[in-house]
């Protein structure tokens, strides 16, 4: 199943090259170069995974992660950073990031994490749907 990914980074060349590599691997990739564009993208479409740069102009990745998780708690976010410090990694995971990777990232590890994100999101969506069905059944008294 095709993974739907949103890639957020302010480096144009990085976005173009990585998104092309992901497409070569069969993924459906959208990109956002600014945090405003990223928020619009998150609001207008569903993604299996979001790959987010930790240091973005205007709003840092941690703040962006908070915004995404507040609005879409089921969204799976993988943070990418130039300097992966333990503190930043712990903070990101506490805020609900699915994973944390240092740049330059290995495409195979990233692909693996995106596949895991997709599986995790499907599980959350399925559980949500199951809960809704149970609620409907309970309310109708069938």
């Amino acid at each position: 199943m095709t993974e739907k990914v949103l890639l957020i980074d302010d480096e144009v060349d990085f976005l173009e090259n990585l998104s092309e590599r992901m497409r070569v691997r069969g993924m459906d990739v959208s990109t956002a170069q600014t945090t405003d564009n990223a928020i619009d993208a998150v609001e207008s479409a569903e993604y299996d995974a979001i790959v987010l740069d930790l240091q973005m102009p205007g709003m840092n990745g941690i703040d962006m992660l908070k915004v995404i998780k507040e609005r879409h708690p089921e969204m799976q976010v993988i943070l990418l950073t130039g300097q992966a410090t333990l503190e930043a990694g712990i903070e990101a995971m506490k805020l609900g990031a699915m994973d944390f990777m240092e740049k330059p990232a290995d495409i195979n590890s990233l692909t693996e994490k995106i596949k895991k994100a997709q599986a995790k999101k499907m599980l959350i969506v399925e559980k949500k749907a199951e809960g809704k069905v149970k609620d409907i059944l309970a309310s109708k008294g069938w």
Binding site: D13, R21, K103
Partner: peptide
């Protein structure tokens, strides 16, 4: 500066990876 250099390496890494693909 080291952060900027990492960004440069990240782009080179993806461009070289793309050529490999």
């Amino acid at each position: 500066v080291s952060h900027e250099v990492k960004n440069v390496l990240a782009v080179v890494n993806e461009a070289a990876g793309l050529l490999e693909d």
